[in-house]
Amino acid sequence: MLEIKDLHVSYGKIAALRGVSLSVAEGEIVTVVGGNGAGKTTTLRTISGVLKPVSGSITFEGESLVGLVSEKVVRRGISHSPEGRLIFGRLSIAENLRLGAYNRKDSAGIASDLDRMYEMFPVLADRRSQRAGTLSGGEQQMLAIGRSLMSNPRLLLLDEPSLGLAPLIVEQIFKVIVDLRQQGVTILLVEQNANEALRISDRAYVLETGEVAMQGPSDQMLKDPKLRTAYLGVD
């Protein structure tokens, strides 16, 4: 579904990605783990057209995404839930969700998807006309995911959905991710919380200083001694 080959991305003179290749097949949950500055967020931002690669290719369902602005990437069926959530705090919860469907014209479909979001996240339904800035961190994360789903994506890019959240909330968020896959959304997940992320994903990539250091099925990665010491905090 998504195929990235030999991707190079730089911030000015500093190389952030140095030949990253990765792929996501339809229906998969693929996790990217790695330390700070490894290039995880850069990878997602390049897929969604925020950053332009120096070289390399990104194809989605057989068509190149390189050079497309974010708006066009969204139209192709990829939605990006960014790190830090970036919800619109001064807008209402309902408005945040509606903006997720900005490029859609089918008002009936939008309305039914809106109901679906409220069903999936009941905390949002109770407070739909409140300012989104009044939500707690976990609720804001759910809103951010809901907003990305409103564009009806086939591929969802999730950047650090568990960042800064209490363990109980993290568990809820990961459950949502698993549910989404069952509803047919393919997911590319970037996480610091490698342990949890590996448990729910099919395959994983480990990025180190802009390169793929390891890759393989998630259950094997979980058992890998090198990975366990480096990212899972187990010795």
Binding site: V50, S70, E71, S79, L86, L99, Y102, N103, S151
Partner: peptide
């Protein structure tokens, strides 16, 4: 940035 990212 966020507005751009969600497709506006």
């Amino acid at each position: 940035q966020a507005a751009r990212l969600i497709g506006i």
